[in-house]
Design a protein around this nucleic acid. Structure first.
Length: 588
DNA sequence: GGAGTTCCTG
DNA sequence: CAGGAACTCC
């Protein structure tokens, strides 16, 4: 089969209309060469017409298009409006009537958002204790400054100010605000900042409302009161921090520091806070060493650097980020012991039977995933996700703490979760022992380099240690479906990018090992970069890319099922999987 | 009706 | 990555 013979088949009449036609009259041509002989649903795409009752037309296209657009937009640092060559894709030939777009949230922005705080987070953990002390010092200094400010501000006003000097009365307070927030590098959360300023303005209000009644009778007196109140409030704050630090068991010092840092990613709601101000381009930060590594031809060994750099990218589930310890410290330690045990038990149970682990402090994952601190969350056929994040947290964030430290984090809200998790485990136990583990997932991902559409029989051959049943099989099939989804999205994204970059000849589109596209794919399927991606995959990827390019630039993407011909082509291009994959212990 | 897909969503 | 809906094919 020569794919090119298929792919090159032109579809002339479509594109000429598309650009202008804002009507919905235009329909893409059918794809006669693909209509028949396919077991796949997409084989019969093209026969739909605008008159078909099942023709959902605009909304459908718009939704899909919007999805891709948002993805592309999320990716592009370059502000090109999408796809000049295919302007209709961006502008929508059918008038942007009800672009119910962007329903779906972006992965990429999220990753990038989480990327920024990571270095600070990591850094902070290395010196949690000292940081707290520094912060205490700062607080004390601020207190002194505050007092000085108040005194200074008081003097001139005593003489010059009459009643109604509220405006300047803000002076000291806003000075406090400024001074207070500046050095407190841990306060990054936008919400927190807002909350802080709100609180302060609340205090201002009180004081403002009080002042007029005091000032007439004597400004010095009211200022004195003001000063005392402020001093008292700040002292209380300092004391409470001191109590936390001094009264808590040693381990908690680090936890406290951690919880401060934890606020950083907490502000994940939106544009990640400028904690990582130093690293404006996190991608470069991550990618550069990897590129060097690739060029240096060090694919297997020496992974630690790459892993370390990669790991922060992969989401720290919000739940495992310790909340700023709002509760009295006494509450926290109480939950810790049971928490530890439960997590160990859960992790152990979920970590899979073949793990000869004991109740050690090492992450109870199988060996392969220890090597690759990937974010593989899927240990289950049967939905036992709850305890996962803790396991992942240890792997993803190489920290100078023992896992016992990490696990004893006072995740108060997680107690309920843990109970639910235990419950889930008891239900899932009989299955999880025979189920799929992260090692299987990793292997499946590597296999994707060779086969995009594996049959269930093939999977059985290549996963001899898996007890296949209907559910396991469909889970693994689902994996590959997810892999494909990611793959095709990347391809489409790159194709559109190429078009918008002015590429006109599809033959120019080749996926090389140093390309962005390759990096994205490699990151997804071969996170540890410890597998050499086969050339055949690069060829398939190039071909896919070209197909998407042709389709989009020909305007075929206005057809709701325009991708199906591409899927069909790609489905025929699976290669043989190396024998070594038949070993149950292969990717170790 | 089951298997296998895609698409969408969380 | 999983769940679920919708779809097609056998």
């Amino acid at each position: 089969m020569d794919p090119n013979s298929i792919l090159l088949s032109p579809q002339p009449q479509i594109c000429s209309h598309l650009a202008e036609a804002c009507t919905e009259g235009e329909r893409s041509s059918s794809h006669p060469e693909l209509d028949r002989d396919s077991p796949f649903p997409w084989s019969q795409v093209p026969s739909s017409s605008p008159t078909d009752p099942e023709w959902f037309g605009d909304e459908h296209i718009q939704a899909k298009r919007a999805r891709v657009e948002t993805i592309v937009r999320g990716m592009c640092l370059s502000p090109n409006p999408l796809v000049p060559g295919n302007a209709q894709a961006g502008v929508s030939p059918r008038c942007p009537k009800k672009a119910r777009e962007r329903k779906r949230k972006q992965n990429l922005p999220t990753q990038q958002g989480l990327l920024m705080p990571a270095p600070a987070w990591d850094q902070g953990n290395r010196k949690g204790g000292p940081r707290v002390r520094e912060q205490l010092h700062l607080l004390k200094q601020q207190l002194r400054h505050l007092q000085e400010h108040i005194l200074q501000a008081a003097k001139p006003r005593d003489t010059a100010q009459g009643p109604g000097g509220c405006g300047t009365g803000k002076g000291p307070l806003s000075a406090k605000q400024g001074n207070g927030c500046g050095p407190r590098s841990w306060v990054v959360d936008g919400d927190h900042q807002q909350g802080t300023s709100k609180d302060l303005s609340g205090a201002e209000k009180h004081q403002e409302s009080e002042k007029p009644s005091f000032l007439p009778s004597g400004a010095p007196a009211s200022l004195e009161i003001l000063r005392k109140e402020l001093t008292r409030a700040v002292s209380q704050a300092v004391d409470s921090v001191l109590q936390k630090v001094l009264l808590d068991p040693p381990g908690r010092l680090t936890q406290l520091g951690r919880s401060f840092q934890g606020q950083v990613p907490e502000g994940r709601n939106e544009p990640s806070p400028p904690v990582g101000g130093a690293c404006k381009d996190p991608l470069a930060l991550v990618a550069l060493p990897r590129r060097v590594q690739l060029q240096a031809g060090v694919p297997v060994g020496n992974l630690s650097l790459a892993k370390r750099l990669d790991s922060p990218r992969y989401l720290i589930p919000p739940r495992m980020i310790p909340k700023p310890c709002q509760d009295p410290p006494a509450n926290c330690p109480l939950t810790a012991p049971s928490h530890i045990q439960e997590n160990q038990i859960l992790s152990q149970l979920l970590g899979h039977g073949c793990n000869n682990g004991h109740w050690s402090s090492s992450p109870p994952q199988d060996s392969s995933s220890q090597r690759h601190p990937s974010s593989e969350p899927a240990l289950r056929p049967w939905r036992t996700t709850k305890p996962q994040p803790l396991v992942l947290s240890q792997q993803q964030c190489p920290l100078p703490f023992t896992s016992a430290h990490l696990e004893s984090l006072p995740l108060l809200p997680s107690v309920k979760m843990e109970q639910r998790g235990l419950h889930a485990v008891t239900e899932a136990l009989p299955f999880s022992l025979e189920g799929l583990n992260p090692g299987h997932l990793k292997k499946a991902k590597l296999m994707f380099f060779f086969t995009r559409y594996p049959s269930s029989n093939l999977l059985k051959v290549y996963f001899p240690d898996v007890q296949f049943n209907r559910c396991i099989t469909s889970q693994m099939i689902k994996w590959f479906s997810n892999f494909r989804e990611f793959y095709y999205i990347q391809m489409e994204k790159s194709a559109r990018q190429a078009i918008s970059d002015g590429v006109t000849n599809p033959k120019m589109l080749v996926v090389l090992r140093n390309s962005e596209l390759f990096r994205a794919l490699n990151m997804h399927y071969n996170k540890g970069n410890d597998f050499e991606v086969p050339d055949c995959f690069l060829e398939i990827a190039s071909l896919t890319l070209q197909e998407f390019f042709r389709a989009v630039s020909a305007g075929r993407d206005s057809d709701p099922s325009w991708k199906k011909p591409i899927y069909k082509i790609i489905s025929k291009l699976d290669s043989d999987i190396p024998e070594i994959f038949k070993s149950s212990s292969y990717p170790q």
